Amino acid sequence: MKTADPELMRAMNRFSVLDSIRRHGPISRVEITERTELSPTTVSAITGSLLDDGLILTRHEGDIRSESVRGRPRVMLELNPAAARVVGAKIAANRMVFVVTDFCGSVLAALTLPIRIDRQPISVIADIVEDGVRRCVLDAGLALSEIHSICLGLPGVIEHRSGHIRSSPILRDANVDFAAEMSARLKTTTIVESDATAITLAHHWFGQARDLEDMVLVSLEQTLGLGVLHNNRLFRGAGGLSHNLGDLVLGMSKDGVMRLASQAGENAILGSEQADGRFAEAVRLGRGMAHAQALIEADDSPLIGAAIRAGETIGFTIANIVTLFAPPRVIVVGSSLALGEPFLTSLRKAYALAIPPSLQDVSEIVFDDSNDDLWARGAAAVALYELYESPWNTTGPAL
């Protein structure tokens, strides 16, 4: 029988220890041992290495100078915020949002550029992204040379390992090697990630899933995305492929294959109204869903019907996801939540109808109107996640 790769096991154990310190620190070595189920010897060796690399700090609880405190002070471990700085970005059709964070994920600077980039040449988009990264780093009082990693979150089908964007609604080109392009421009390791994966990690680190090791996130933005977390780790497809939920097949129609995006995607919901001049302008400026919300509140029948249809298909889809993964929590985020009660009510009803009786009490569904800064912070968390997994030495990550 083939044994596990020792280097891989060491990397996994190291990540487990570092992530436990991130989630629960300040924390003692004994508590790390209990949470990770690693041996005290292994935890001691790993934490010693992390201290040598300057990734964690010690904090002493208790004071040996005080006569009222008996015994030696407890040595607690916590992340060193200054160990690394990263940049995360949410790249959308009509805006870019950048954040710079420290090693703990705390935001040092944020920048929003309300600029339309869809259908622009990839070279122009790369110019704008480069300028945004450089401006945000400068706002943080840093030099680009002090940034350890950058992560750009975009909608679409993205191959995480290679940095290839197979397809994206905000790019007119397909199969773009965007990670290599931006790494060369910025002279810093640049990761390209699905925005759905980024917001999934954001909720695990900072949001609605901080208490969980397993969860599923459904993103209802310009594309319909899926994020899966299992045992505190992101689950991706072959080659690190993101999950494009919009491509899920619902069945056949007279026109051929019917996919989820054709019923619940943004274009499917807004399509009936885009001939209207004001509505078309709102869509162009990225405010289509907000405008749709106002029309729904004014009893616009076609939009209400579209919202109900989209809610039903998303409800059935979530029921299928729960049937497959049985996560304790499903977090639903994205612009479609602006459709309000017609959408949400139909989603809940469809989910209740479709979920098997044996799984009715398994998953909690949470709706969260995550702001753009959280999406960008999630991209930064992806960059930190990679650093946590990377072997380090005293001069930095060995990427």
Rank of each mutant, 00 (worst) to 15 (best):
residue 8 L to P: 00
residue 11 A to W: 00
residue 13 N to Q: 15
residue 14 R to Y: 01
residue 14 R to N: 08
residue 15 F to T: 04
residue 33 T to H: 02
residue 36 T to L: 05
residue 50 L to G: 10
residue 51 L to V: 07
residue 55 L to F: 05
residue 57 L to V: 14
residue 69 V to P: 01
residue 69 V to W: 13
residue 71 G to E: 12
residue 75 V to F: 03
residue 76 M to Q: 15
residue 78 E to T: 15
residue 79 L to C: 11
residue 79 L to H: 11
residue 102 D to I: 07
residue 109 A to S: 15
residue 112 T to N: 10
residue 112 T to I: 07
residue 121 P to E: 04
residue 124 V to D: 09
residue 128 I to A: 07
residue 135 R to F: 00
residue 137 V to L: 12
residue 147 I to W: 12
residue 155 P to K: 13
residue 158 I to M: 06
residue 166 R to C: 05
residue 166 R to V: 09
residue 182 M to W: 11
residue 203 H to T: 03
residue 225 G to A: 07
residue 234 L to Y: 00
residue 239 G to Y: 04
residue 244 N to I: 01
residue 245 L to Q: 04
residue 263 Q to C: 12
residue 272 S to T: 14
residue 273 E to F: 04
residue 279 F to L: 10
residue 279 F to T: 10
residue 288 G to N: 02
residue 295 L to C: 09
residue 296 I to D: 05
residue 303 L to S: 07
residue 311 G to I: 12
residue 312 E to I: 08
residue 313 T to G: 01
residue 315 G to C: 11
residue 324 L to I: 15
residue 325 F to Q: 10
residue 326 A to Y: 00
residue 333 V to E: 10
residue 343 F to I: 03
residue 344 L to D: 01
residue 347 L to D: 03
residue 361 D to T: 14
residue 363 S to G: 03
residue 364 E to S: 10
residue 366 V to W: 03
